[in-house]
Write a protein that binds this DNA or RNA. Structure first.
Lengths: 149, 149
DNA sequence: CCGAATTGTATGCTTCACTAACGAATTAGC
DNA sequence: GCTAATTCGTTAGTGAAGCATACAATTCGG
């Protein structure tokens, strides 16, 4: 006897399992855990791979644009780019068109790492997609996109 | 001209936007950000609310079972329960049936906090659900459940 | 009863996210 | 053109989470 939408009983809304956000959090945890295993050898995180990938797709991209694309603030972007620069995967150059910006480029090492990462991503995605029917994958991505804009 | 499924071109698999895990991560970020705003006054995180909620639903639950439900290891569960205990939301008792376990209970303060939290959750969920059609919500939760088991 | 497994605990490390402040460069307003 | 506001990068500090490891107490299997 589930009483939903009852304005009287506002306290006991629903069970934790009916909270959409709860499932998004759990799914993210599961995906992240599997990602970490898959990338143990490469020693790269999701964020790091994303930054490598985007930098490769948009050579000379600024940190602020990188952050906008991945929904991170400037400070967070800094720490990630710093790590990748320390490992000689990314090179910072002052932008020629806007002196405030840094133009980011992959090094050869960075390209090699990204290439290896993409192989692992393929594995990781295969694991994830094995839990969904092809038609569902499209639907899922579309719905998630609506959530994150 | 997107070349998909090409076995020759294994390096350039697809765009970042075609990676399901990428969208899960972004969606989680967006949800978490909105959650944090909504809960700024209460000063509670998703995990903390989840622990309060589950402890309320299962009085006397052990930390290990809490962790299993929320997919956290023992150490992570500890830190969260510690924080909630420091704020007098949760009380630890030695289990009567198994001396290794702690039986967790909400305090009156904890119940008050959870009650307030559930009001905020309702707001937060409304924001999230406003981006989806009712029929989609069910489908989304079902798919996410398949991902996190 | 003894060894193995379970549970809680303590410690330390890492990633990520955010805030606040500052300087340098650019842009806008007048 | 010149000041004022804004943008971008940078640094430093805080806090939540997740994980690994080690240890003690308890329980369980034989």
């Amino acid at each position: 006897m589930k009483e939903r939408g009852s304005l009287v009983e506002m306290d006991k809304i629903e069970g934790l399992n009916d909270i959409v956000g709860f499932h998004i959090r759990l799914a993210h945890g599961a995906v992240n855990r599997h990602f970490t295993e898959t990338f143990a050898d490469l020693d790269l995180t999701q964020k790091q791979v994303s930054v490598l990938w985007l930098t490769d797709d948009h050579p000379g991209i600024s940190q602020i644009d990188l952050g906008r694309e991945l929904q991170m603030d400037r400070a967070t972007t800094m720490t990630i780019v710093n790590r990748l620069q320390q490992r000689d995967f990314i090179r910072r150059e002052r932008s020629l068109t806007d002196g405030r910006k840094q133009a980011l480029h992959l090094t050869d090492e960075g390209r090699t790492a990204l290439s290896a990462a993409k192989q692992c991503i393929a594995q990781h995605e295969a694991w994830l997609k094995s839990r969904l029917k092809p038609s569902e994958i499209e639907k899922l991505v579309e719905m998630l996109s609506r959530i994150h804009d």
